[in-house]
Design a protein around this nucleic acid. Structure first.
Lengths: 257, 257
DNA sequence: CGGGAACCTGTGATTTTCCTGAGAAACGCA
DNA sequence: TGCGTTTCTCAGGAAAATCACAGGTTCCCG
């Protein structure tokens, strides 16, 4: 394992028994992601969520540890908090690049950080999300990074389809039966989560944990509210695709069945 | 009970003559589950129910014991009460993760404490149920966790089939002879219990203990009532699958025999 | 054939769960 | 800064689910 040095990360997808799509490396082994953040709760949260994607995760709490781990773990992607105790985010990035020139990086930044500095950094293949983030957002962006860092012809993989409903993760375009639908950011994330788990009941707690930021402290009925919004836009007048399982949660499925 | 030392490997789980489906690990050995709760009545209850599933169970009454037991028992899943005497549930989780990074955890929380920041708990592979719970619920969720974690071999068994009756545990969909049937949450749980034990007589007491919450204080004839509901929906006009064994209980079996 | 026990099910009260309108607050952008 | 958009809280109402009660039915046994 240690000797494995996969600098080329063309990705392929497979479909798990549950119907969830998973990213895999060309040799069929799981994607490797390094998570770097000084807050233990964040690395724990991310590790848990990313592991659930079927990926192999290592984490580090500071820059030094990040470089060391990167050297022997040789991840396919890195999630990097820009605010580390021992060194500046840029320094970490520089050393990372020396170890792994091709690895895409997802930056975590504070909301009020100087955005143009980050914007400059992301001119390459990289990307960033602001804290507090939602797990769906992090996962989606990581998937995008990994996908793009490998095979460039993966356009089709960025489109989710359920029945006559399509959602493009790259362009954020949604349409039902060919007709374009405008969604707000939250509506989009919610729909993406539903569509990534078609025909599967998702509890309100699951949805909340996944689609809303980890620091959300509000009422659980925002989920109901946004389901209501989505229905107005997705199911309006048509045969409904979003269904309530009273006492269990919600699920999306093709209208036909 | 105290003297019990379930490190017996010789007692392989057998496929029961009734055809109950059992989860096994890839090597054929029984699944191992660690139960952590400070109330003895709860650990007893759970241990009994989970052993009935053919699983190997150990229990602990506090966080310290949980970590210790986890270290040497190396369970495939953990049931963890969030309210422990010696340490916070999240702390226990952290230490557990250090011992067993991949193990899925089913949290037990108080009903009114649902909002008390369980953030992210259902985001990873984990899940939770609120007290008071029904045993069917706990078992079902544990099965789901174990199935998805890959610790068990039969990975996609989310559909129960008895005759022309099918029940999908993921989508919560039920159909007989291809025709969809809508069930309420309780009806669904009851039918799931019956279908997980086909051709086997289940007493009203058994059903009450498994399908209803352990603190249910009502009339025992709710079981009769819900059997009646189920018959109306499942057996309506067709050859009956749900049968009464007067003085003994109920059972479900394919219509043909 | 009669009586009792076990079971079935209609009715309706209570509780739970969900939906959605209205409006306040936060946000984003010009 | 100001305006439109988005997010979210709150609360009322509707719908559904759960369950108690009680009268009716079936079955068993003497």
């Amino acid at each position: 394992m240690l000797s494995e040095a996969p600098d080329i990360v063309s990705s392929m997808t497979t479909t798990s028994p549950q119907g969830r799509t998973e990213l895999l490396r060309p040799d069929g082994s799981p994607v490797r992601v390094l998570v770097v953040d000084d807050e233990l709760s964040i690395t724990e949260l991310l590790s848990m969520a990313l592991r659930y994607e079927g990926w192999q995760i290592r984490s580090a709490g500071d820059g030094t540890g990040a470089i060391q781990t990167a050297r022997e773990f040789r991840p396919d992607a890195v999630v990097l908090d820009m605010m580390l105790p021992d060194m500046d985010g840029l320094t970490v990035l520089g050393r990372l690049r020396r170890e792994l020139p091709e690895v895409p990086v997802l930056f975590l930044t504070a909301k009020d950080a100087v955005e143009d500095r980050i914007a400059g950094l992301t001119a390459g293949g990289d990307d960033y999300v602001t804290k507090p983030f939602s797990l769906e957002e992090v996962v989606a962006r990581l998937r995008g990074l990994i996908r793009r860092s490998g095979a460039a012809d993966r356009r089709s993989e960025s489109v989710l389809v359920v029945g006559d409903l399509t959602l493009d993760e790259d362009s954020h375009e949604v349409s039902r039966a060919g007709e374009g639908i405008h969604l707000t950011a939250t509506e989009f994330e919610l729909l993406r989560f539903l569509m990534r788990n078609p025909r599967r009941v998702l509890s309100k707690a699951q949805i909340l944990d996944r689609v809303w930021s980890y620091d959300f402290g509000g009422q659980a009925n925002v989920v109901e509210l946004y389901i209501s919004y989505l229905r107005r836009k997705i199911d309006a007048g048509r045969e409904p695709m979003i269904h309530t399982r009273r006492g269990a949660g919600y699920l999306i499925k093709p209208a036909a069945s």
